[in-house]
Each structure stands twice: as C-alpha cells, then as structure tokens.
Design a protein around this nucleic acid. Structure first.
Lengths: 145, 145
DNA sequence: TATACTGTTATTATATTTGTTACAGTTGAG
DNA sequence: CTCAACTGTAACAAATATAATAACAGTATA
C-alpha cells in the first residue's frame, strides 16, 4: 500500500485535531515526520478533490474543508492511492500455446481489482473523526498505565 | 501486494491444469514467466505448508498435494505474503508533545491489519479450482471472438 | 515590495523487488 | 557406484519504486 494514503490520513487527522484546523506544510510535515514538499504534494491532491482549502502568503496554509465525521478513509484512498494494492508484476505470457500462461494475468488482475473493491468497502466504515477518536483513546491508555 | 502470491497461485493453477499434476521448476518458470530459482523459492515455502510434494532426481519436480477445490487463495496469501499490504513506512514520531504525532502509527497499523483481515476473508471465497475455471472461461471467450 | 506561503519539477539517496548465478544436498537410472 | 537431474538456499547484481531534498515560479498579504 502506498504511504501517501498514510500521509493524507495523518495530515487530515492532525488538522481536525488542532483548534483552528489550519496549518502550513512545515508544521504538518513535522507532525507526520516527512518532508514538507511531500506533504504539499499529497495535500495539493486533496485540495483538488475538495477536502482542503489553501491560503497562500503570510500566515497561510491548509485548512480543513469538511466535517471530520463526513469523510471516510475510502475517499482518501481513492484520491491518493487507488490501484496501489495491485502488484506491478504480472505472470504469464502472450504465448497462445497454453491457456494458463496466456490468461492468468487477466484473471489475477480481476482478482486484485475485486480485492481492492473489498478494501474500499472496509475503508468506508471509518471516518477521519473515528481515527481522531482512536488516537485520543490511545493517548488515554498511554497515560493510565 | 507481494508478487510471490501471484507466482504461488499461477504455479498451483498450472499444476492443477496439467494432466499428471507434476512439473519441475523450469517448466513452471517458463509458464509463469520468471526465473526457475524464484519459482523454487516460492514453491519450497508451499511445500513446507504441505500444499506440494517434491521429488528430487531425474524426472522429479513439484506435485500437487491437494484437491484444487479445497485450497483457497487466502491460504496461499497467508503462506507467502502475509503483511504485504501494510506499508513499511510509518508516520509520526515518539515525541510525546502531540498525541496525534505519537499515536498515529499505532492507529494506522491497526487499520491496515484489519484491512488485511478483510482481504483474507475475501480471498477465502476463491479456490485454485475457481481460478482454473476462470482461466478456462477466458480461453473460451478468446476463441469465440 | 518583501515575505511567507503553495504547487510543481527535478535530482539524489535509499529500499525493495526481481533476475541470475552458484553450489550443496538428494534421488533415481543405468 | 556414479552420473545426471532435480530441489533448496544463499549471495549477488540489476532494475524499479519510494522517499528525501532542493529549487523555484506563482500568489497572497502584511
């Protein structure tokens, strides 16, 4: 799985967490632990999909453009990483002498596509608000020990 | 997703397809379109899990050790590629100043593990015999055009 | 007009995946 | 017994994918 999905989810959870729901790429990159440029790349994509507003110039940054309860991980997967569970390598050949050799790639591709559909169905069950909630619960566990 | 899973499935479908259900790594590698050594690596793993018998020496090779109707893709995924949909990269840091930064990795890891469980559930629905059937149907489509 | 941002591209570094070679160990035929 | 044909495995090389970094044009705002 593509780690841009992780960066997208983390960034949005972080924005949902902070009071004014706004931060620039430096702050997000520091929280996510990657390079600001990578954050900008992922978030510019989420902006195009309408999940974020941006403000350029002094004091600007990324601003959450949705209710955390209304955006699911499935949407973010589709926006950033669709196809990423399908392996780039395919078996078989176009040699028509063996139906296994020449049809396996097609059959496996179908299996992977369907698997991805199942994955998306599962990701639909979790919203950004849910993830933030889990983060908070993790924090509580941590302190109570 | 790991392509060893693809190699495993393709190899077993091929063995299930050929009449005597036996072939050596050269024949399988040629059908799969990879190196015999890679085939041996994957299949030695499947042998350990009991899906194959091997015969060394002249005329030897890999022999299907199960009914194609009784082995699911889930088992092969577990044998060859478990964990492969979980990204190696994790976000966040151990810096305790922000609960998002320090708990996201754990929360995401849980999400990916659950996603993998869903994937396995899906793969349980398909057997090697089903895949072979689909290969045969692809072949029919191909000829009827 | 200077400054602080985003958006984007290009480049480098690192990690992963795949291909290949090599060889020890095993089996069975002759 | 000996040779040839296998598997099993490790080591290495090549190719590819991923992540980090740098650079800079464009834009908004103080």
């Amino acid at each position: 799985m593509n780690s841009e999905f992780t960066i997208a989810v983390h960034s949005l959870v972080y924005l949902a967490y902070i009071p004014d729901r706004m931060a620039n790429s430096d702050m997000i990159a520091h929280n996510v632990n990657t390079h600001p440029s990578r954050v900008r790349k992922v978030l510019s994509c989420l902006k195009k999909s309408g999940y974020l507003a941006t403000k350029e110039g002094i004091g600007g940054g990324y601003l959450l453009n949705f209710q955390p309860e209304r955006v699911t991980l499935a949407e973010l997967y589709e926006a950033t990483s669709v196809g990423s569970i399908i392996p780039s390598w395919s078996s078989g050949s176009t040699d028509p002498a063996c139906i296994v050799a020449c049809n396996m790639a097609k059959v496996m591709d179908r299996i992977f596509s369907d698997a991805e559909r199942q994955l998306v169905l599962y990701l639909e069950q979790t919203t950004i608000a849910d993830v933030l909630q889990r983060v908070r619960e993790s924090g509580i566990e941590q302190h109570s020990r």
